[in-house]
Design a protein around this nucleic acid. Structure first.
Length: 176
DNA sequence: CCCTGATTCGC
DNA sequence: GCGAATCAGG
């Protein structure tokens, strides 16, 4: 695949919305996350509003295996003011396939950076649905989970608790 | 191990 | 320009 105008526009859009490079690569198709990152840099889009995770620290790269000439290139650190585009994704995630467990108070404690959409779930991400699938406030917990279980440790506790326990837990949560 | 973005450099 | 390989970091 090549970087057509449309694909570049979509890349810009998704990148500005805060999607990760691998997620964007999945959306575009036919490219790897490396390709996406490379393109982002060539477009001068690097450095999003808030560094997603470890953006600010990685600075060194390959130690020149071929030439042996240890010539560090220019850091290329232009300020690159990014327009304050909305961080909120406006694509509508697919509705949950499985029956949706009750929304628990923990939902609001999921860090935004860890939340997942139906598109970003893997075997190792918590699939606990949060919010109403018919709205665009819907997402999945997205925390890391064991490959063998559908939920993170926290939601496993909720999902596999006896119903009576769950109720009392909820009452407490609502009261407080 | 999973993941993230950053960087270099052969093509 | 492109992107795999490689890096540093959570």
């Amino acid at each position: 695949m090549s970087w057509t105008n449309e694909r570049v526009e979509l890349l810009k859009k998704l990148w500005s919305e805060g999607l990760s490079a691998s997620q964007i690569a999945g959306e575009l198709g036919g490219v790897t996350r490396n390709a996406v990152i490379g393109k982002v840099h060539r477009l001068g889009l690097s450095g999003r509003a808030k560094t997603t995770s470890s953006a600010s620290k990685a600075r060194r790269a390959r130690p020149n295996p071929a030439t042996g000439s240890a010539a560090p290139k220019r850091p290329a650190s232009q300020p690159q003011s990014i327009g304050a585009t909305a961080l909120k994704a406006d694509y509508t995630p697919a509705p949950a396939v499985e029956a949706r467990p009750q929304v628990e108070p923990i939902a609001e404690l999921v860090p935004i950076s860890q939340r997942a959409t139906i598109l970003t779930l893997t075997e190792r991400t918590c699939k606990w649905p949060i919010g109403d699938p018919s709205t665009d406030d819907f997402y999945f917990c997205g925390r890391q989970s064991d490959p063998n279980v559908p939920y993170c440790v926290h939601h496993c506790k909720i999902a596999y608790q006896p119903v009576s326990d769950r109720r009392s837990r909820k009452v407490v949560a609502q009261a407080g």
